[in-house]
Design a protein around this nucleic acid. Sequence first.
DNA 1: CCCACCTCATATCCT
DNA 2: ATGAGGTGGG
Length: 735
Amino acid sequence: MPSATPQLLTGLNPEQLAAVTLPPQHALILAGAGSGKTRVLTTRIAWLISTSQAGPHGILAVTFTNKAAKEMLTRLSAMLPINTRGMWIGTFHGLCNRLLRAHYVEAGLPQLFQILDQADQLSAIKRLLKSLNVDDEKFQPRELQHFINAQKEQGARASAVEAWDDFSRKRLELYDAYEQQCQREGVVDFAELLLRSFELLSRNEILCRHYQQRFRHILVDEFQDTNRLQYRWLKLLAGGGACIFGVGDDDQSIYAFRGAEVGNMRDLEREFKIANVIRLEQNYRSHGNILDAANAIIKNNQSRLGKNLWTDAGSGEPIRVSEALSDIDEARWIVEEIKALSRDGHARSECALLYRSNAQSRVLEHALFNAGLPYRVYGGLRFFERQEIKHALAYLRLIANPDDDTAFARVVNFPTRGIGARSLEQLADLAKAQQCSLHAAIGQLTGKAQASLASFAQLIVKMREGSSDLPLPEVVDHVLDLSGLREHYRNEKEGQDRLANLDELISAAANFIMEENRHENSAANAAEQTDLAAFLAHAALEAGEHQAGDSDDAVQLMTVHSAKGLEFNVVFISGLEEGLFPHEQSQLEEKGLEEERRLMYVAVTRARQRLYLSFAQTRMLHGQTRYNLASRFLEEIPPSLLKWLTPKARNDFVAQPKARYASAPASPAMPHQPHSLQRENENGLRVGQNVRHTKFGVGVIVNAEGSGMDARVQVNFGHAGMKWLALSVAKLTPA
DNA sequence: CCCACCTCATATCCT
DNA sequence: ATGAGGTGGG
């Protein structure tokens, strides 16, 4: 082993050390949560460079989130005296974007191609279906979107897929038509970024060899989350003798829904002939009880590579569990706990509130807001996804590329300028006949619609001319005025927030330029690229992870998915209810429950010192009150690790009759106002009550109808699902 | 032909 | 809560 910079290696445990100093060869590191995965990755890179086994130029490192990429860059520049600019470090999508920008001609793309995010893609598909007069009942846009993405994630173009029946054939035609539409408009969706750059490399031998020879070391974070196409992409790039260094944890694979395949880890091991997989099992993050809980939960999964985390940090505090009457009470309780923690000297920014779905954040935000506690929400409706921002971006996109029909359709009549559905229909027909973009079709238009559309085209020209030579922030400012967006939101009564956001967009542009100049790392290679196009790509790829108020000591709110890779002293996991976590949609998927369990595993292992678990008897969701049983994941934790803060519901979690103020879903009565007594029926049952069924076990009554011999109740049995039962037949006893 | 207003259906997780 | 779709007034 070269002896350079030993201080780089101090403090590593034997397994970490082995991983960092592996001789040049393919490697797979099975790294449990909190086992120092990021540290190993960054130290490996630093070690390769400082021992002269590789230059910065020869490093390619792929991560899954921009946050992780940034983190890696920061740590690296702290470790190494050299500039990190030669390295390619980023997300798959970010790196592919970079590749395509640099070789847009070879990739068959316009120089200023735009990136469609999920919402853009959906509206492009809707537009396509309309123009082809396809019944959108039979071919639902969302479903089609999912189909197209799934094909691309497999690396399959429409021509490469076989169809056996009419429906599949038609669906493939639509896939094909969608691709043509995107090509015509000069836009690419997320999956296309990957597929297109894969094809670019596999078809262009010279280019491929260039990159194969350049990148000697390819390091991949979160390997369990790669999809099939990403795997092939890596394999292709490593074809010239580069070493792949994969780090992953099969227990933290939570992106199957977007094509991730855990099997890729096994394939890597097999195809790259990795003799000994290095396991990192010592956890440096969490106290023992938390780890024991995590291990106990994940043990219930069948398909695992096998791994058990341990720590020498001592068992620490018990895991606190709380049952609330309603989601609102749950939120109030959390706020009280945080206040108490705060008084005890815990930083608010070290407290994280995790939940399964974004919709759950609202109640929590409300409670935090009322209590005057600063908080910060990650994910959810992100900055660049807000409608006013998307409108503004659409104008910017039209400046860069007037043929971008998605952008065109979005703002051609916003703010309204007398261009209605009829005129647009004419225009679309014409564009279709001429095989050209909407913008290009304006010139050939005749009749009444011509004038208003021509003046819109004029407007775009005016914007472009007026903004050439201006710095980017001023371009944005200029566009906000000329487009009439500012004016429009000024006159709207609820428009103040939106106006503020538009101003924020100008700052975002200014920030972007500053960042870009600071470490020219990211897009410097694509020399031809204008600031505008770079900014638009940034907006699509990084939907706005940084919000205002970065510096405040704020409570952190996020979904479990976005919490992956992060850690906090105190973690609350809320909404631990059947149907919510595990999510009911997951029951429909084959391996759905196992993925939910991994998600729970990820959630639990975010905590360093203290973990709270909570659930509510009733919850408002989508305007309906729902009655849920406690999550099965609570049952999977050994009781000895738990400390119940509310009277413990043991056994089936429902030994205690529930409070008597639950109301039927149909009833508007608020469940948290303890006065709406529900009438009991003649059998002594009422909505909200827990009952036991000989076959289905314990459940909660969520609805009732009929009386006497016809009386039926609807019971949510959690594990066994939702059932309607006739009281005259089914034996139900209060539980 | 366009627009403002109303009703209705809809709703994981994310680059 | 938000978007798509329908309706009546201009």
